[in-house]
């Protein structure tokens, strides 16, 4: 099978892109944990009247 340099470049760049998009990493896990923490902090800053029950019906 013949393959042109352009085709080869496309295959290589596609595989590099795919690899960069699929490899799970410590960074991703840390980033996800950081988001949970940031969300938690944002919620902690919200005052709630003590009698506020969780919403179970969602029609405003």
């Amino acid at each position: 099978m013949k393959i042109t340099r352009r085709q080869l470049a496309m295959v290589v760049s596609a595989s590099t892109l795919a690899q960069s998009q699929t490899t799970s990493s410590v960074d991703d896990t840390q980033a996800a944990r950081d988001r949970l923490k940031a969300n938690s902090n944002a919620l902690a800053q919200q005052d709630l009247p003590p009698a506020t029950e969780p919403a179970f019906k969602f029609q405003a």
Binding site: Q21, S25, A31, A32, L36
Partner: peptide, 16 residues
């Protein structure tokens, strides 16, 4: 497929 999605799902088990 998506590494960020995998990490997000795994980490969601840690939500208080």
């Amino acid at each position: 497929v998506d590494a960020a999605q995998i990490a997000g799902l795994k980490t969601s088990l840690e939500l208080p």
